[in-house]
Design a protein around this nucleic acid. Sequence first.
DNA 1: GAAATTATGTATCATATGTTACAATTTTAA
DNA 2: TTAAAATTGTAACATATGATACATAATTTC
Lengths: 226, 226
Amino acid sequence: MEIPFAQLAATNIFQGLSVEDIAELFDGKPFRIKEYSRDEYIAFSHDVCHDMLFVVKGSVRGEMTDFSGKKLKIEDILAPRPLAAAFIFGKENRFPVDIIANEQVTILTIPRDVLIYILQHSQVVLQNYLNAISSRTQFLSNKIRFLSFKTIREKIANYVLNQTPRDSNKLMLNQSQSELADFFGVTRPSLARTMAEMEEEGLLRVERREITILDKEKLNKLLNKL
Amino acid sequence: MEIPFAQLAATNIFQGLSVEDIAELFDGKPFRIKEYSRDEYIAFSHDVCHDMLFVVKGSVRGEMTDFSGKKLKIEDILAPRPLAAAFIFGKENRFPVDIIANEQVTILTIPRDVLIYILQHSQVVLQNYLNAISSRTQFLSNKIRFLSFKTIREKIANYVLNQTPRDSNKLMLNQSQSELADFFGVTRPSLARTMAEMEEEGLLRVERREITILDKEKLNKLLNKL
DNA sequence: GAAATTATGTATCATATGTTACAATTTTAA
DNA sequence: TTAAAATTGTAACATATGATACATAATTTC
């Protein structure tokens, strides 16, 4: 079987390279292509991760099996995309989750050595790769920062201040209250209640999806930590 | 001023290379060395980050200025160490925090292009670099997993199950209850209370720093999600 | 435009955790 | 060894949020 260069060219890692460029990089290098059928395991959590995996066709899911054996879906990964780019390297280069096929799926496996070879021979791929891992780090950092806001008030204040354009004090939510509550990790009535309280205190005005900042000062003060 | 190769050789990024190897990699490449005095700003949060910074001598701190202007120390970084390796690349290549000198400090600045050049010409450095960012990602992922445990019971169960050796059911804490509470992000009395409750229910026994697992089954069940 | 569905506002109660305070115990220092 | 300091256990109360239920309002569908 041939390496599906066209699909690779569409991934974030190889973007900017032509199919020919990619073919040249891979010339003679070992690889593996394998098909999996629905619900088949592609990798197990805690498996050592020697290789770079690309979802070439179909979609897979990452699932975490917790202590009791119950399953928890973490995320869906749709082709074409690399799998767990950050887990080939690092101290604990093991899969953090089980990887399971959602449907008939094609996986391209590239040994770590080949990946390193490619990173050293294509500046574009190297930059793409570094960008991908770095973006992931930044995403996670932001997530943690957000999680560090303990109360619903803080989450709202942080969210509203971040989302509202500098020159305005009005914000149209692009998601429903329930979705926002999910995003915050709180229940919908609790979110509504806290918003109502903040409205009563004159911090902001909430009309359905339109939020108006009334007292930026106080919202800022809310976010004081320590 | 010369590049302090010896200090670089001691960083995680250049470990495994001799001083001569490093000198060769840097041969003729541009760089900057600058001294900062105590409390001087080395970089501002939101500054675009073009360069790789190394703390060659002294120590710096990362500080986050929140909306209200209050300061919050994030971490100390002691020489010799690279600074914000993950923020040179990625979507938002900006400093997430202010970088401030703790004392008289020496910073080596290497342009991004030079870093890329080096990554492409030394497999060791490339691997080190990828390992460093990847470890960071894994650290952050774990942190988030941990933060996803909502109740103190869950945190305790997760912590105890993870820390206890497979073949044993006893665990000696290597930190005080207060420190553990801080790590969990909860107050000390709350932690003590929850531990006492779990003891009453026969899940575990707590005697000062010694914790004995009495009912592994139930602890596992506690961690069921969804 | 009426009916059905979905989103939102609000209330009540239960519960987990924070806050504060103090006593009991262990560890450290004099 | 004793005094001082730090750690741990425990209690009473305050508060934030979850759970549940229902009413009201908006939106969609027919």
